[in-house]
Design a protein around this nucleic acid. Structure first.
Lengths: 264, 264
DNA sequence: TCCTTTAGTTGAACGTGTTCAAATAATGCT
DNA sequence: AGCATTATTTGAACACGTTCAACTAAAGGA
């Protein structure tokens, strides 16, 4: 079915990985408007990772809301105020975790993508890998969706503060598309569409109470079958007279709405 | 362009309407798990409306977060604790407002739908009317999206507490479809798809800072043109050999995922 | 070594949404 | 009218995320 391996070992690796990973490699989302000093000393980075690790453990145990900042600070062995020296807000901890997810996604997809024999399998790797990484973290992902609709919140999906995250994610999907022969406009918008699809799937995933979220996996596989077929249809010469004007109109619409990639 | 009139007068009517409207007609979302007594006296209903009205004014003035429950209670002329006798939470006030929006949407669409000459215009009425109603309330609608991703929150989009709201909204779109000739499966899923589309548009709408949100209106009109064309294509006999198996697969997928309407 | 600057830490305080036992007002029954 | 029940109101309290002025520790230069 899926072109991706999903072993328990991999999932565990993620959980420890985020705590152990070398610090300072990926820039943090929150640096954009955070009071955190731009330069953290060696000890500072360690402390930051301690807070992140403690927070993630508590989030996984109790959920995002039930784990308080006081709990997190205590679990990380410091005072409440100190933790705010490293993270400007509780949500920014989740955001830092999501930065890691993004990077890990990129790394894994680049590593595994060569195993795929066709577009369907490449998409399978891109999507399943993402779910693999966040498999045990549904209880903290709710925080990501909390301020999506608030345009003035720094963590809004649409805000400029998260645009880099979006672009990184879209780049992974673009990479998964590879050199697949596609109409130019389809190729242009496909990463955005795949990103949107993957956001919707994560939303479903977070709400999926089936055993190990198998329901989401099934939905994903079925959806990807259809997506692949849609890409085939999009290139079928017979349908071009019908599809080309529609695609043109869709492109105009999205561009006018400011939803086209790389507007700035 | 649009089949709907969008005058300032109508918008104003809405704003006062929600405060004046006869109480007790539409059941409140929050009754599902709220400590609010099932029976509110005549005076109690008045007080509830006072709180709702005061809250909406403050939400519109300052935004959802900046308007505190203490402000609302004071503006409604009562103590902080008293307001919690009528609304179990701050978000539930917005939810009550959205109940009103839903009812008003139904009333307006039923009133105006006969003016439409075709499917495109009926859809235009259904969608534009919704935006008309919430035109000046973007600052409070952010609260609706806040807990959408949290499966255990009573205001989650997926939760059972909001299923009635969803069904009422889908019923409006089903009504707008009218007796349009459509394949059975398309007819079955169309209200859900239109509801999802309208949620996405509201999300865009809330974030739209263009003058009077004209950008959303343009996006909407263009999208509806495409939707109408899609419905046409869905019924075109020539395409049935291609489309029918795809539709069948989509139906299976959505049903298996528990996303089909009226599952219970 | 001493001083200056920066990095990191503290604990108290603020304002927030929410809760609740107790008090009061209204209603309805006999 | 008097009583019992229900409806409403109160104000204090709680726990939370966040802020901040003051403090201590470390680093670096002369």
């Amino acid at each position: 079915m899926s072109a991706t391996s999903r072993t328990k070992a991999e999932v565990t690796e993620v959980q420890t990985g985020v705590a152990v990973q070398a610090a300072g490699s990926q820039p943090s989302l929150v640096e954009h408007e955070s009071p955190v000093p731009a330069t953290l000393g060696k000890k500072g980075e360690m402390t930051r990772q301690q807070i992140l690790s403690a927070a993630l453990n508590l989030f996984r145990e109790r959920g995002f809301d039930a784990a308080t900042m006081r709990d997190i600070a205590e679990s990380a062995g410091m005072s409440l105020g100190a933790s705010y020296y490293y993270f400007p807000s509780k949500e920014s901890i989740v955001s830092a975790y999501y930065d890691y997810v993004q990077q890990e996604h990129k790394v894994r997809v680049e590593r595994e993508i060569s195993k795929a024999k066709n577009l369907r399998q490449r998409l399978g790797i891109a999507f399943h890998t993402k779910l693999d990484i966040i498999q045990n973290d549904r209880r903290l992902l709710v925080a990501l969706f909390r301020y999506g609709g608030d345009p003035h919140h720094p963590l809004s999906w649409f805000g400029p503060a998260t645009s880099r995250q979006r672009e990184l994610s879209m780049a992974v999907f673009a990479h998964a598309l590879g050199d697949q022969k596609l109409p130019k406009d389809v190729r242009y918008f496909a990463p955005l569409a795949l990103w949107a699809l993957h956001m919707g799937l994560i939303l479903y995933f977070v709400n999926d109470s089936s055993d190990e979220q198998r329901r989401t996996r099934r939905l994903l596989d079925g959806t990807l079958d259809l997506v692949t077929r849609a890409f085939d249809l999009a290139t079928a010469p017979v349908l071009q007279p019908i599809l080309r004007p529609i695609r043109k109109r869709v492109t105009e619409l999205l561009t006018d709405a400011g939803l086209a990639p790389n507007p700035g």
